[in-house]
Design a protein around this nucleic acid. Structure first.
Length: 449
RNA sequence: GCGCCCAUCGUCUAGCGGUCCAGGACGUCGCCCUUUCACGGCGAAAACACGGGUUCGAUUCCCGUUGGGCGCGCCA
């Protein structure tokens, strides 16, 4: 097998991606990030009716927001001729055969089989058609769709996540590879592309395990190298319901709009349902070192959005200035004081945008809360001269303590109320130098409120 | 209905026959630190789904039941 892993994330651009898709994308991305390798973003857009360019664009945006930067982006809609050739190859090998049933007929048969307690498997009636019968159908204007003739045996593989795995293909329908109009379903293009792009590891959700058995047969029928497969456990929402059944709420776009940190989304998306404790991380590299596909559990895991908010806040509390500098600049926080402002405020924000709430305290207008004018006048008079730094607060309050005999809450709280106008907030030692002498003096001397 | 996978504290999990009156993380609660919040420190409550086996001994192995996830598409 290639020493350099090549993985792919293959969404169909028929909607926006949600947290479950992000889990798959990230698991792939982190896999090659740690080993050195390539990540291909492949849009499985053979369903022209449902695929939309704007969805593809938004998927790329969502991935970029999470920090996933593909090495290559491909579109299946541009590669039809190649799938055509593969289909011909299967046809001449006797593995692809025409079938003429209508979707309604098939649906009816499936229902009958289910009612009889039989698995709803295609009966291969088309395989028993004589040449004359086929010609008759064609003469009526019926166009065939094309099915891949499955080997009935059991397909086995050593799964990256689940170990020894097997699927009995005898209980599967021959998959339709191509529609009447010549367009392809996802199965064949996926395998053709995996072969051609040299994909070494297919990491996807466990909803694909039976597809994997079919696709392994397809890899073999096409003479391609069968990649390693890994099927990660699926996520459910907080109530235990499968994500695929719900839409919207857990989309990456909605999480971004809520102001959740991308690193928190990434961390929870891949750490939940694994043996590793969910924790804030400082980078995707740190996350990559934590994630081990083999350590994923095999049952579905709950993704709790409430947990995400807490993780997002904790991620912010430890975030170095360099990691947020450009986003702070966009909020108007830049220049010499920007780092000090961030370090003073970060422990008190749940979302990055919360820093805006504190800006007036540092550099704008507030309504000081004044309850004890005499004490504040005394405090104003004791305000140190010269340049202020982190030590100014304690020097000042020490002086005040000696002069007034106050201590604890009685000493500090009136100062906080006057200087910030609020009951609680960041440490005043960090805030005071940012507020500056002039502003502090004005607030301490404000009229009673 | 049939098939595959799973089943340990509220949640995510460790556990691969005795080391488990079950360990960690998040959450919750309490205490400490602190002018407040947050952080940090210490501590507490909190779980082996049920029934049968196998075994000297089952959380751990087997079978069944129940529950859950997924699949059974001319979706991907």
């Amino acid at each position: 097998m290639s020493p350099v892993p090549i993985v792919r994330f293959a969404p169909s651009p028929t909607g926006r991606i949600h947290i479950g898709n992000a889990r798959t994308a990230l698991l792939n991305w982190l896999y090659v990030r740690r080993r050195g390798g390539r990540f291909v973003l492949r849009f499985d857009d053979t369903d022209v009716g449902r695929s939309k360019a704007e969805y593809a664009a938004s998927i790329e945006q969502d991935l970029a927001w999470l920090g996933v930067e593909p090495d290559d982006v491909r579109r299946q809609s541009e590669r039809m001729a190649i799938y055509d050739a593969a289909a011909e190859k299967l046809k001449s090998a006797g593995r692809l055969y025409p079938a003429y049933e209508t979707p309604e007929e098939l649906d009816r048969r499936r229902k009958v089989q289910q009612a009889l307690g039989r698995p709803p498997v295609y009966d291969r009636a088309a395989l028993r058609l004589t040449d004359a019968e086929r010609a008759a159908l064609e003469a009526q204007g019926r166009k065939p769709h094309w099915r891949f003739r499955l080997d009935p045996g059991t397909v086995r593989w050593d799964d990256l996540a689940r170990g020894e795995s097997h699927v009995d293909c005898g209980s599967l329908s021959d998959p339709v590879l191509r529609r009447e109009d010549g367009t392809f379903l996802y199965t064949l293009p996926s395998v053709v592309d995996d072969i051609e792009f040299g994909v070494t590891d297919v990491i996807r959700g466990e909803d694909h395990v039976t597809n994997t058995a079919v696709q392994i047969q397809l890899f073999e029928a096409l003479g391609g190298v069968v990649p390693r497969f890994g099927h990660h456990n699926l996520l459910t929402d907080a109530s235990g319901e499968g994500l695929s059944k719900r839409t919207g709420a857990l989309s990456i776009a909605s999480l971004r709009e809520k102001g959740v940190e991308p690193l928190a989304v990434a961390a929870l998306a891949v750490l939940v349902g694994s043996a590793e404790a969910v924790r804030p991380v400082a980078s995707l590299d740190e996350l990559a070192a934590l994630v081990e596909i083999r350590h994923l559990s095999h049952g579905a895991a709950r993704f709790d959005e409430a947990e995400l908010d807490a993780l997002s806040a904790r991620t912010l509390h430890a975030m170095p200035y360099a990691a947020v500098a450009s986003r702070l600049a966009a909020l108007g926080i830049a220049g010499a004081d920007a780092e000090a402002i961030w370090l003073a405020l970060r422990g008190n924000v749940a979302k990055l945008s919360d820093v805006a709430d504190w800006l007036p305290v540092i550099a704008g207008e507030i309504a000081p809360v004044v309850e004890d004018r005499a004490y504040l006048a005394q405090a104003a008079a004791a305000l140190p001269e010269g340049d202020w730094d982190q030590t100014t607060w304690s020097a000042w309050t020490k002086t005040l303590k000696a002069a007034t005999g106050r201590k604890g809450r009685e000493l500090f709280h009136p100062l906080r109320l006057a200087l910030t106008g609020r009951e609680s907030g960041p440490e005043l030692a960090a805030l005071l130098p940012l507020i500056g002498r002039a502003r502090a003096l004005a607030r301490l001397s404000a009229p009673s409120s």
